[in-house]
Simulated scan of single mutants.
Amino acid sequence: MGQNGVGTHETLSVGELAARSGVAISALHFYERQGLLRSTRNAGNQRRYRRDALRRVAVIRVAQRAGIPLAAIGEALATLPDGRTPTQADWTRLSRRWRADLDARIAQLTRLRDQLDGCIGCGCLSLRVCPLRNPGDVARARGPGAPYLEP
């Protein structure tokens, strides 16, 4: 038996977690320092991860690819239960936290795609129809950032 009475076949070493998840050991250590993952130590002082860490790593990676900041990922993961593998209901509740933000990102990316299509296609040779041109710096009155691309 490993630490906390858990058999070693029920836990993963950092190398096993890295191999199974496809994530570098250094990234797993980083996730742990950020509080996104938790490990215990065995008698030889080696990290051991519960098997549900595989799901957590998968969620972290997918969320990162979707542009969700690590702080928001950490807040969501903190709502998952300790001491048991999260259920489908737990994961559904977690994903709902990100739905509005993801919908807003999708809308912004769609606007960006639709408004930049002409510029990308023409190489900005047609300034009369470019949605990003700014004669006389009139966009300054709309505030900082990319006012023509943001709602």
Rank of each mutant, 00 (worst) to 15 (best):
R99D: 10
A100W: 00
Q88G: 10
G44D: 12
R61G: 01
Y49C: 03
E75I: 03
P86K: 02
R65A: 13
L80D: 05
S39C: 03
R111D: 13
T79D: 07
T92R: 15
P69H: 10
A107I: 03
Q64L: 15
R97D: 00
I60G: 00
D90T: 11
A66T: 09
T92A: 15
I106Q: 13
E75W: 05
A89V: 14
A100H: 07
T85N: 12
I106F: 07
Q108K: 12
R97A: 11
R105W: 02
T40K: 03
G74R: 08
R51E: 11
L102D: 03
R105M: 09
T87M: 04
A63L: 15
A72S: 13
T79S: 14
I68Q: 04
R99W: 03
G74Y: 06
W98G: 09
L94E: 01
R47M: 04
A72T: 08
A71G: 09
D101H: 14
V62E: 08
A100R: 10
A53Q: 01
Q108I: 00
W91D: 06
T110V: 07
D52T: 09
A89R: 13
Q64N: 07
T85C: 08
A78M: 05
Y49S: 04
A66W: 06
D101G: 14
A53M: 04
T87P: 01
V62F: 08
R65M: 04
W91P: 02
G83N: 06
P81C: 05
I68N: 03
R84S: 11
R48A: 06
D103W: 02
L77M: 11
L54T: 11
S39W: 00
L54K: 09
R51W: 07
A43M: 10
S95K: 12
L102F: 04
I106G: 08
A66Y: 07
T87S: 15
D52R: 07
S95P: 00
P81K: 05
W98L: 15
I60W: 01
D52C: 11
